[in-house]
Amino acid sequence: MSVDDATVRKIARLARIEIHEDKVTKMANELNGILNWIEMLNEVDVNGVEPMASAVAIALPMRDDAVTDGNIQSSILKNAPKADSGFFVVPKSVE
């Protein structure tokens, strides 16, 4: 599995990171370097092995249904690049 320039552009778009055209090939090479190294995992026999998602082997703890948070509009908006009338203001996005 090797990453070409088109793939770099595609994943950069998925990740919403602009990559200048003159850097695409360099990034593809870097990613391929890392991915080639990672290929070594194919040597491991993983037949019948359950994937391990967490180092914690307990069930999900649950909380009671109570309103214990919120009503902190000014704190929520405090660090906003743009806010108005209690709303976050972001670039126009119409579907």
């Binding site: 919403r16 990171i17 996005s93």
Partner: peptide
């Protein structure tokens, strides 16, 4: 992503703003 906190770099549209802010 520059929407609710942190640095935003305004682009020509939403996607451009995301991409420029993060780049």
């Amino acid at each position: 992503d520059g929407m609710r906190f942190g640095a935003r770099v305004e682009g020509v549209d939403l996607t451009d703003t995301y991409e420029k802010s993060r780049a």
